[in-house]
């Protein structure tokens, strides 16, 4: 892994922490683990050009890894069900020690299942005057010709939106 300076890690950690708290999310109070994950996110950004999930095997192709760019599409469901995201970078306010000491199952569908989903998305008959787009990170919905460049709620990039209706 490329070496990333402590200052850079600290700085990025504080940025993530501020953003998380502002949006009602929480970073893991286990600082050693959290800083390690932050370092890995920065390392992946250097390596792949995007912050791929530290605990998953990235393909190196952005369009194949969109669902696992941090925060991944699976974070909110895992927070709701297990009190933490897959890596435990994000935790829910009432996460217990139990939640944090045991691994949780991988929610990301297999490569085949993901491919099927994309194929399904392409055919979308609709009687609405505008398509409805859904941010796959936070669930924000909007009806417009195209999704926004960045999600106004969670700042996820345009390519993280799916056509919902």
């Amino acid at each position: 892994m490329t070496e990333i300076s402590r200052e850079k890690i600290q700085e990025y950690y504080h940025k993530l922490l501020t953003e998380a708290e502002k949006a009602g999310y929480h970073l893991n109070p286990d600082l050693d683990l959290t800083l390690e994950l932050v370092k890995s996110l920065l390392a992946n950004e250097e390596r792949y050009g995007y912050q791929s999930c530290p605990c998953r095997w990235a393909s190196g192709l952005r369009e194949e890894d969109l669902d696992i760019i941090c925060p991944c599409d699976y974070r909110d469901a895992d927070l709701a069900e297990y009190g933490r995201c897959y890596c435990a970078l994000y935790v829910s306010a009432n996460a217990t020690k139990e939640n944090l000491s045991r691994p949780i199952p991988e929610r990301r569908p297999s490569k085949e299942e993901r491919k099927k989903k994309t194929e399904k998305e392409i055919s979308h008959p609709s009687s609405l005057s505008l398509p409805v787009w859904r941010c796959q990170v936070c669930g924000y919905l909007c009806a417009r010709k195209e999704p926004p460049d960045v999600c106004p709620i969670c700042k996820a990039s345009k390519d993280r939106f799916e056509r919902f209706f």
């Binding site: 892994m1 994950l37 890995s40 390392a43 992946n44 530290p54 605990c55 998953r56 890596c87 691994p103």
Partner: peptide, 9 residues
């Protein structure tokens, strides 16, 4: 393992 994964480490 994955080189960037703290749980693997």
């Amino acid at each position: 393992a994955i080189s960037t994964c703290p749980w693997c480490r």
